[in-house]
């Protein structure tokens, strides 16, 4: 793996869209950032629970959910530092958890996409066309 691929993947993992921004796909990077962060924030706003490894109690599904949610990177770290989230009695509790989990999984897909772009699996002409479209 080359340094460009590694850098873009680490950036993408830390901040949604940052990897694409680094690789020159700026229009798309802004769109990805907005989508992932908005999904995560909506999840928090509707009382969704933030899955954490510490609270997984050794349960496989909760552990996987925590790993998926952690894919949001710094957004997850900041939200986790702000204290426990989630109101189980809320009617939108499950929705919120799903929104945050989806945001994390989306960002993990972005990390893989950065790798594809950096190693040349997606060509420069594709990038120009997609940026024009975005």
């Amino acid at each position: 793996m080359n340094a460009r691929a590694l850098t873009s993947m680490l950036l993408a993992l830390a901040v949604p869209g940052a990897g694409h921004f680094y690789l020159g796909r700026r229009g798309r990077a802004i769109a990805f950032f907005c989508i992932v962060v908005l999904l995560f924030l909506i999840g928090l706003a509707v009382d969704g629970s933030l899955y954490t490894l510490a609270e997984s109690n050794g349960q496989l599904l909760k552990r996987l959910a925590a790993l998926g949610s952690m894919g949001s990177g710094l957004v997850y770290v900041i939200a986790n530092a702000m204290g426990p989230h989630g109101v189980v009695t809320s009617t939108t509790f499950e929705y919120g958890a799903t929104f945050m989990l989806t945001a994390g999984l989306m960002n993990l897909l972005l990390v893989l996409d950065c790798y594809d772009i950096a190693v040349g699996r997606k060509t420069a002409s594709d990038a120009r066309r997609s940026d024009a479209a975005a």
């Binding site: 992932v36 909506i42 509707v46 939108t92 996409d113 594709d126 997609s130 479209a133």
Partner: peptide, 20 residues
């Protein structure tokens, strides 16, 4: 919530998987 989720997911995959 279902509408927002559908729009965000559809937009995400359209931008990720398609070029034109």
């Amino acid at each position: 919530l279902m509408f927002l989720y559908s729009v965000a997911t559809a937009l995400f995959f359209a931008l990720l998987w398609r070029e034109t």
